[in-house]
């Protein structure tokens, strides 16, 4: 018997982006980013264990523009994943399942990520004397 073409369920592109789904997908993406960040974390600690010269090299690399770009990305990923992770833990104890709470929580996570990232880098750059 010839194989009949069966109808497929609607694929991703048909759905309009919603705050709930976008934040959910971003939790995975930022988690992936942080897994990459773990590599930097281990390199930094390993460099310290290998001594002052290795540490100076790691410090040089992490303060190049590429290093800063990565660290900035990890900061965004960290705050997003942390804040949204707390949102998940709140859901796990049974709170915040109404649609308006889910939407407000998503926006709060995005706002908190922005605010914490700006504060963190303002402090970091102020200490380095950039401004």
């Amino acid at each position: 018997m010839a194989k009949r073409k069966r109808p497929l369920s609607p694929h991703l592109h048909i759905y309009k982006g919603q705050i709930s789904s976008v934040v959910s997908v971003m939790q995975r993406i930022t988690g992936g980013g942080l897994a990459v960040g773990l590599g930097f974390f281990v390199y930094w600690l390993g460099a310290a264990a290998y001594g002052p010269d290795a540490y100076a090299t790691a410090h040089w690399f992490l303060t190049t523009w590429f290093g800063y770009l990565c660290l900035f990305g990890f900061t965004v990923c960290m705050y997003f994943h942390l804040c949204n992770g707390i949102r998940h833990l709140v859901w796990d104890i049974g709170w915040g399942f109404e649609i308006h709470q889910v939407n407000a929580g998503g926006i709060a996570v995005l706002a908190a990520t922005g605010i914490f990232t700006v504060i963190t880098w303002a402090v970091a750059l102020a200490k380095l004397g950039v401004f």
């Binding site: 773990l38 590599g39 281990v42």
Partner: peptide
Amino acid sequence: FGAFAVVSIIL
């Protein structure tokens, strides 16, 4: 990597 990081911290 976890073992390497922990040993590095302790060293």
